[in-house]
């Protein structure tokens, strides 16, 4: 058994998928939340009473990281890492890797793009505090695509035959 075969086992490929989902979506969310946080601090120095409103905006790009986490957990359950590990063929492993890609990649980019909208929403709240609903909605529209991605990732993992 050469090195290549030892590393790229079905089990490890599936694990790679789980790890990518949680990593990429997590990095995206971390970047996103920090971007909105910076914009929010700018506003809060002027008016600390708006904390509640901007907190919601700041939390919005955080969901992609959670979606990545859920996908990763489901894969880990499915391949039995917490109990008796299932023997996976390489092609089964690749299946899980593929299943993780939608939320890994879409999660990463949508979190950052969503954060940009949310950060400009913070500016909107600075000038018009009553329009918080519109700022949230505008930002939530971006999240739609992360939701679609996690939906496909979850369905693929749930329907996987192990």
């Amino acid at each position: 058994m050469n090195f290549f075969d030892m590393v790229f086992t079905g089990q490890n490929l599936a694990l790679l998928g789980a790890v990518l989902a949680v990593m990429l979506a997590g990095i995206g969310s971390a970047k996103g939340v920090s971007m909105v946080g910076e914009a929010a601090s700018g506003l809060l120095t002027e008016d600390p009473s708006k904390f509640g409103k901007v907190l919601i905006l700041q939390a919005l790009p955080g969901t992609q990281g959670i979606y990545g986490l859920i996908t990763a957990f489901l894969i880990v359950f499915k391949i039995g890492l917490l109990g008796e590990p299932a023997a996976l063929t390489v092609s089964q492993g690749v299946y899980f890797l593929m299943a993780a890609l939608p939320i890994a990649i879409v999660g990463y980019f949508s979190a950052i793009k969503q954060a940009k909208v949310a950060a400009s929403g913070v500016n909107l709240i600075a000038k018009r505090p009553d329009e918080v609903g519109k700022a949230i909605t505008a930002s939530a529209l971006v999240e739609t695509y992360a939701i679609f991605a996690v939906l496909i990732s979850l369905l693929l993992v749930l329907f996987a035959k192990v």
Partner: peptide
């Protein structure tokens, strides 16, 4: 198709709860 988010968010809550 936008309403498929009902399933996605439902699954998200359920799976985190499971964990």
């Amino acid at each position: 198709l936008s309403y498929s988010r009902i399933l996605a968010l439902g699954l998200a809550a359920g799976v985190i709860g499971q964990v």
